[in-house]
């Protein structure tokens, strides 16, 4: 990747354009990563000059959508970190199973792989009928993709391995229909998933949840923004609810840390105070 095409100053100009023109606030994002993302799309789309690139983002709505999609990271997989999903299956979700209704917020769901993973576990625990998964992302394009429940067949072997490692005992292929290079997951799995846009930077709390998952999103935010988002999660989480983060993320050192107790071994905290 050629990083020299975009300077630090270019990055600041584009981020302030996005905020002023479209109301998308990326100014709290870590710069090294977003600069790489911007350089990547600049090169990929063979922009002729920075001025032309900037003009296009400001004036071409379709290109703006593509730009936002490309500067956010949408890499995800089903049952990533199997031990984490095992903990959900064996400890967290059974405990929430005593509630009449389980409300789950998956923040930054991207193309939906984790939403379907959770749905599969809930179904196997016989809890899906009384669960609601709110899967949100700031990016409408990835949500459209997520709602299709179609993934690449080439991923299925890896996902199946993850599923088994996470404690799944069914035939993983029983959850999808294969058609050439694509795997279409059962509609039943998405009946309880609500896909919706939500921007963690600018949108407010919209419900109370018993479980909030937000994995590998906070790593892209600076410390201040991380703290604000953790406050948002705190105000959206029921007493004794669970908050799950990515394997390198933490609530430690934040304003909410003293109300949260970590489950041993995984990046899952229970709201106890």
């Amino acid at each position: 990747m050629d990083l020299s095409v975009i300077t630090d100053e270019h990055v600041e100009i584009l981020l302030s354009d996005l905020l002023e023109q479209y109301g998308y606030d990326f100014t709290g994002y870590s710069r090294a990563s977003i600069k790489r993302r911007i350089s990547r799309i600049y090169t990929l789309d063979r922009a002729l000059s920075f001025a032309e690139f900037r003009y296009r983002i400001l004036n071409d709505q379709a290109y703006f959508k593509r730009f936002v999609e490309q500067i956010t990271v949408n890499v995800t997989e089903m049952f990533r970190d199997p031990s984490f999903f095992r903990k959900l299956r064996e400890e967290v979700l059974p405990k929430l199973g005593t509630y009449p209704l389980i409300r789950i917020w998956l923040a930054g769901c991207s193309t939906g792989e984790e939403a379907y993973s959770i749905s599969i576990i809930l179904k196997e625990l016989n809890l899906l009928h009384k669960s609601l998964i709110y899967a949100t992302d700031l990016n409408p394009t990835v949500l459209e993709k997520a709602a299709q429940s179609i993934f690449a067949m080439s991923q299925m072997q890896q996902y199946s391995e993850n599923y088994i490692l996470s404690g799944g005992t069914k035939e993983f292929s029983s959850y999808y229909t294969a058609s050439y290079s694509l795997a279409k997951f059962d509609d039943e799995l998405k009946r309880k998933i609500v896909f919706s846009t939500h921007n963690l930077v600018s949108d407010h709390s919209f419900n109370e949840f018993q479980l909030i998952l937000c994995r590998n999103v906070l790593i892209y935010f600076n410390r201040d923004l991380q703290h604000n988002v953790l406050d948002l999660f705190d105000s959206s989480l029921d007493e004794l609810g669970y908050l799950a983060l990515g394997s390198k993320e933490t609530v430690e050192f934040s304003r909410i840390s003293n109300r949260y107790k970590r489950l041993p071994g995984e990046k899952i905290w229970r709201k106890v105070g």
Binding site: S30, A32, S33, R37, V73, V75, N216, I219, Y220
Partner: peptide, 14 residues
């Protein structure tokens, strides 16, 4: 990744 302010950041992109 290394930030300009000499801190680390992590990235889960491709």
């Amino acid at each position: 990744l290394i930030e300009q302010n000499e801190t680390f950041s992590l990235d889960y992109s491709e």
